[in-house]
Design a protein around this nucleic acid. Sequence first.
DNA 1: TTGTATGCGTTATCAG
DNA 2: CTGATAACGCATACAA
Lengths: 362, 362
Amino acid sequence: MRARPTIVTVAKRAGVAVSTVSRYLNGHYASPAVKARLATIIKELGYAPSWTARNLSFGRRGCIGVVVGSSRDPWFVEVFTGIEQELLARDTSLRLCSLDLRSARKPAIVLEWIRDRRIDGLIVVKSQRSERALLRAAVKEKLPTVTVAPQEILPMVQVVRCNDVAAGETAANYLVDLGHRQIGFVRGAPQATDSQLRLKGFRQGLAKRRICYDPRRVYCCGRSDEEAGSTFAKTFLKSPLQETALVLANDALALGFMTVARDRGIGIPQELSIVGFDGLPQGATSFPQLTTVAQPMREMGRAACGRLFEVIAELAPLETIELPMGLLPRGSSGPWSAMDRHWPTPRRPFRGNNLSLVLREH
Amino acid sequence: MRARPTIVTVAKRAGVAVSTVSRYLNGHYASPAVKARLATIIKELGYAPSWTARNLSFGRRGCIGVVVGSSRDPWFVEVFTGIEQELLARDTSLRLCSLDLRSARKPAIVLEWIRDRRIDGLIVVKSQRSERALLRAAVKEKLPTVTVAPQEILPMVQVVRCNDVAAGETAANYLVDLGHRQIGFVRGAPQATDSQLRLKGFRQGLAKRRICYDPRRVYCCGRSDEEAGSTFAKTFLKSPLQETALVLANDALALGFMTVARDRGIGIPQELSIVGFDGLPQGATSFPQLTTVAQPMREMGRAACGRLFEVIAELAPLETIELPMGLLPRGSSGPWSAMDRHWPTPRRPFRGNNLSLVLREH
DNA sequence: TTGTATGCGTTATCAG
DNA sequence: CTGATAACGCATACAA
């Protein structure tokens, strides 16, 4: 079995110089005659350029790095899909590092990537305070970097994010339109920027509609994950409901909340409407399905990756890409009329809840 | 700003030949004196070898390919974590291709990876019949390849899988020990090998315990995903329960089933015990938590990747790695005593199910 | 133990 | 339009 053909093999066979072949391959000038000959020879030889050699010559690595808190976070999984797509199109490979397991050595590894230029660029997803060192190193080494949905505002780096403020307003408008007046807001981790911005938008929304904003209706989970939502629900549901609707800072929280609420026999949305943010796939299979203000997660991944390559190509100016979020009205939210409050809603019957069933089977 | 230092820079500065530096870097022979000098020089220069050049010299690409049906499959996400870990340790990058979106061009892209040797090796996860062309091409090109949990038996390729038969038996034993005698088995997609093997083991388990195996208790969903489980539950639960326990071919099915069952007011595990397979993380947060025979998913990813590198290093003989699955007893299954059948179990009370709560809060 | 020379497969420069 | 030839950065026989 012969070794793989190289550009030299092709050149010899065609009776031309390697440089000619190279030019032909890269779409530069070559006479029609040579072009035709090379085409057939390459085909019959089954020649394919060596990506490694080509990268060496170009002075690039053909590889980018992706850093994330946890590669198992459902939100990241969606974003990652977008990155994958873009990478596939650009014929670039990837190094992935999630900081959550064996976290001790992880940041050091990424620093190596950066300092040793093992990657052409870096995407940092949902970067937290703990990732600042990485970003600083990247900036210092002039390594093209873009952050996706960063959890703190950084002045010196590319950003792809969503309009969380507008999303908060969307949630408020939606619930007010449904007739709700007592609406609670449940924050996630205190530092989480998205949670803060969504609350900000929520307040703005209420203000514009001239609905009273009651700070006592703002609750706070310590973290932003599903379990935190469940934990919150357990204490929240101990006392009688003061709200007719609850906006939770993200879908994970909302899903965790709903699981417990359902078990406690709270009728959703009959007694309590629930709205989340993000648009996780789980929200479409939960019961009831979760109303949410969704982020275009895959698109965010694509945008981040696309932007990264622009920056790699020519040092592009700092820029923030802001994508819109959109309401996804589903079963966890419903109308509220003052009338219902006089005929107090019974606990949801155990079987045969028609509304719910219809929604589920839809 | 100077260009990055190369091995030549180091050599000049140290007054030695590049080959000496190279040897030092690769842990070959060098006098203590030179060693010390190089060490300090490299440190103060901040020199790091070019991975691209090194790869070119080695004739490798420093990159492997991973192909999967859907990169959003929760099971894959776990396996992928293991791959990520191993890759991190081996300083290798990755090309990922999930066949589910824009699937038209996808197989062609992977074929390019294979034919053009853009990757040093290939991992195909849960390979299906549609991936046969890829495997064939890989074998033909002598590209090191390992499949993880393949859905059909292929003679010519490395395999990392679990002992599904034993797992089926484990499930049977567990439920029989709990006192169950009417146990149903719910299969997934008809072609799914794991589903078949688990059923086989299940039957063996019953036989060894001299429990009657009733073919009428074997049901079949068309597919293997969560939605299929829900759909099955809707028809299954229309008629009165004939079983005291149900083994579903995987966790996705089981979770889908439980969602509907719970909504129908079926007491799990009071009226019906549920057991799944795989050990998805969702099973730990579902309500009740799902009893399952778990696969060491992350370990499978690690093993596959580790094995792949062995094959890359020296063409290792064909081998099948079989990992053990382990029972994870949780809240969805419970004991069944004949006595209960005479005092018919009431529907699970709506609030205050202590057993479940304890498990959840654990 | 160290230095010399060559190869890895491309691209780019610069004559022709 | 085409052909030598020098990078690209490193590894390794082979010779010293």
